[in-house]
């Protein structure tokens, strides 16, 4: 149930982001979700793409530090308390969330939250037994 996320090291240099995204576009790799963390010197760009296995060698060849990181995707019904329930479930199982970001997919028709946790396998089990939808990789890469 885990999704392969690209983590790319980027220095804060003008145009670097454009270069990366253009490189992926040219290879026909579609970007589904983006998140960036940064400090004054560098940051990590996190991408969910249609074909992570293809993207990694492509970016490495362009001289980038890139690694694949497993994350989980939680489908969110657009009702109050849906997200709170998910986070509470994880907290109750003593699973920490390192970072998260969300995106909306037109095809799926709902919001999706991507989570990197201290225990992704445990998180999937906990969420599913609490009746929360965990979205599979196939629906994320190719909805």
């Amino acid at each position: 149930m885990q999704i392969q996320q690209l983590s790319i090291f980027v220095e804060n240099k003008a145009g670097r982001l454009a270069e990366i995204t253009e490189l992926l576009a040219k290879a026909g790799v579609d970007i589904r979700a983006v998140s960036a963390t940064d400090t004054s010197d560098f940051g990590i760009l996190r991408l969910i793409v249609s074909d992570p296995e293809k993207a990694v060698p492509l970016l490495r060849a362009a001289g980038m530090t890139v690694s694949l990181t497993s994350v989980i995707a939680v489908g969110m019904m657009d009702v109050p308390g849906a997200f709170a329930k998910a986070v509470r479930t994880l907290a109750d199982h003593a699973i920490n969330v390192d970072y998260m970001y969300a995106f909306t997919s037109r095809d799926m028709g709902k919001a999706c939250v991507l989570l990197h946790t201290s225990d992704n396998d445990g998180a999937v089990k906990a969420l599913q037994s609490a009746g929360i939808e965990v979205v599979g990789a196939e629906n994320i890469y190719r909805p």
Partner: peptide, 11 residues
């Protein structure tokens, strides 16, 4: 320089 394969799981 970072090595190309350095894991970037966490900041």
């Amino acid at each position: 320089e970072l090595l190309p394969s350095t894991p970037l799981d966490r900041y």
